[in-house]
Design a protein around this nucleic acid. Structure first.
Length: 561
RNA sequence: GCGCCCGUAGCUCAGCUGGAUAGAGCAACGGACUUCUAAUCCGUAGGCCACAGGUUCGAAUCCUGUCGGGCGUACCA
């Protein structure tokens, strides 16, 4: 619709130039915007204002010549959509569209169905979204849930907008935390056998560790005891990590989050990629030795200090494998890499950015979505979490208690740029305070209407792909609904460009509100069969758009509630 | 100290690639079920958009500074 309006404006401007009403044929970058107020029509453009310096004329004068040309060119194809054009304020040109301009939108939605809202602005660009990537040393907690919801939705939205997306989970299955995990399990196992052991401060204290210890003791206890402690710990680590990872996969799956690939950190060592990356940067003099350690010159790329890649002990740091990992991603052919991280990792961005640029990529090819922390509350009071102390609320707990849909909707309701208060008591409530029901209710309500219409033999099927009598949709509430439906694709695109899923949330709330208002004011199944058919077409279109939007957020669209 | 995020209605937050009269949910108050689902709707009330400068025809939006809150500043992961 906006494109059609833009064409009208541009055509008129060209015509005005030919007629000598405008001195220049230069067309600046203009905006066609939806208006905030009914009195300003449906769309407005700032053409006159931004052309003022080019044309060396006052905005209102420019606007006048444009309006004159539009009215003169009544025969133009798009022109018939416009009922009235007005000049307002400092020089806005306001367009009032006729109702019939909107009616085809309904047909278009019914026809496009699940594809409605999709686009190709991504041009199949290869994008990788990496998220969650929690260490397999314990179950996922609430904070991971937010990252999972954001990453998964961003992936969905980018795909829908025409990007070629791969979602990946990076498994930190190497290094010290895995060793700590093994030690934790091993010590619990020994305790279980009755040995008196002081459990170290830096080991994982969660109950799940004790459970693993029990299990391993039963299954492999006798063999383990005979082994060297060092080997036994390694075995414990391997078994526990495998078990935990499976738990993470299950939790994510129950949360509706899927990954295309699970990438192992250890594999980077096995394939010598870490070693090779270090050698490569050494040869470029970007890695040097000092105090017995190897340092990467991240300061050359704006970091506040250089960073260690190999400690004086000879062990590599996390940063070392991350350098290799990101290089490997580009080798796989991705044009863009998006990492979803918790805000507590923001100091890490410069470092990775430096290594990415050092490896010859452009800064824009690496982006980090920084998800601000989830502030967990219980009945309004802060609820502190610590993995080590074993006191935390897991993602599974949340999903079991409030449901996948409510949890995901909650996580995506706000921009991730802001911290999120997640109150356990509130989230557990299944009442109207939860916005997810507000939107899902639209879908269920419409299904109810369609089922009734089918029962009364008004329609054969509750799903159809052609509207009927759309020209009878002339109630203001109906036109308003169609306008919102029409804006869906634009919202998806905006969401994709800004990488902000909450735009979809806001859109859905807005659409749901418009629908509920319409529903309460107008009856779909009434006396006039022609109008009934028109309205059935409209509400079916609403239903499809609600479903498409919810799908992007990973929330289900129920037929009944 | 330095770096990142935030500061908008009583509360939680949208709006931020500058546009005309700043929005929603919750909470408060008053109404609407003999109807396709009241998990809904309609109405009332609620604002120095933290503060101070700057850029602009125009600033909640962009720039600078100040104040306030969160997070981070490891040869941890």
């Amino acid at each position: 619709m906006k494109d059609a309006i833009k064409k009208i404006v541009v055509d008129a401007a060209e015509q005005a130039f030919e007629n000598g009403m405008l001195p220049s044929d230069q067309i600046p970058d203009i905006q066609i915007e939806e208006t905030k107020y009914q009195t300003h029509g449906d769309y407005s453009t700032n053409f006159a204002m931004v052309s003022a310096s080019i044309q060396k004329m006052s905005p209102r004068k420019i606007a006048q010549s444009i309006v004159l040309e539009i009215e003169a060119g009544k025969k133009g194809k798009n022109r018939s959509l416009v009922e009235k054009v007005e000049i307002a304020g400092p020089g806005f040109i306001n367009f009032f569209l006729s109702n019939k301009a909107w009616h085809p939108v309904v047909d278009h939605i019914l026809d496009q169905d699940k594809l409605y809202g999709s686009s190709n602005i991504g041009k199949n660009e290869k994008v990788q979204v990496e998220f969650v990537s929690a260490n397999p040393t314990g179950p996922l907690h609430v904070g991971h849930g937010r990252g999972a919801a954001v990453g998964d939705s961003v992936g969905n939205i980018l795909s829908f907008a025409g990007f070629s997306v791969q979602k990946e989970y990076y498994i930190n299955d190497s290094g010290r935390q895995i060793k700590t995990l093994g030690t934790s399990v091993w010590l619990r196992l020994l305790q279980k056998r009755g040995e008196q052991i002081d459990f170290p401060e830096d080991c994982y204290k969660g109950d799940y560790i004790k459970e693993f210890a029990n299990e391993i003791l039963k299954k492999h206890g006798n063999e383990l005891i005979k082994q060297d402690e060092k080997d036994a710990i390694t075995v414990c680590a391997r078994l526990a990590a495998k078990k935990i990872l499976q738990g993470i996969k299950d939790d994510l799956s129950n949360f509706g989050v899927t990954f295309d690939q699970w990438f192992s950190e250890q594999s980077l060592y096995d394939s010598k990629r870490v070693e090779k990356a270090i050698d490569m940067f050494k040869s470029k003099d970007l890695i040097y030795e000092e105090d017995g350690a190897l340092w990467f010159r991240t300061m050359d790329f704006g970091d506040e200090k250089n960073r260690v890649v190999v400690k004086s002990s000879g062990l590599t740091t996390y940063f070392a494998s991350d350098i290799a990992y990101h290089m490997e991603k580009y080798e796989r052919g991705f044009d863009r890499i998006i990492d979803v991280w918790g805000a507590d990792h923001h100091g890490y961005i410069k470092r990775i950015d430096a290594s990415v640029i050092a490896s010859g990529k452009k800064s824009e090819q690496f982006e980090v979505i920084l998800v601000q922390l989830v502030n967990l509350l219980r009945g309004g009071k802060p609820f502190q979490m610590s993995t080590r102390a074993g006191r935390f609320v897991t993602l599974k707990e949340i999903v079991d208690e409030v449901g996948k849909d409510a949890a995901r909707f909650m996580f995506l309701s706000r921009s991730y740029d802001s911290g999120l208060d997640f109150d356990l008591e509130l989230a557990k409530q299944k009442n109207s305070e939860n916005p997810v029901y507000y939107v899902q209710y639209v879908h269920a309500r419409i299904t109810g209407i369609l089922l009734k219409a089918k029962q009364e033999k008004i329609i054969h099927d509750i799903d159809f792909n052609r509207g009927e009598n759309l020209n009878l949709l002339n109630e203001p509430a109906e036109i308003k609904l169609i306008k919102i439906l029409n804006a869906f694709r634009e919202n998806v695109e905006k969401s994709a460009v800004t990488l902000h899923p909450h735009i979809i949330f806001t859109y859905l709330m807005n659409l749901a509100s418009a629908f509920h208002g319409y529903y309460n004011r107008h009856k779909v199944i009434g006396d006039d069969i022609k109008i009934v058919k028109a309205r059935l077409s409209l509400v079916l279109a609403v239903k499809k758009v609600i479903r498409n939007g919810l799908t992007l957020l990973g929330v289900s669209a129920p037929e009944r509630m």
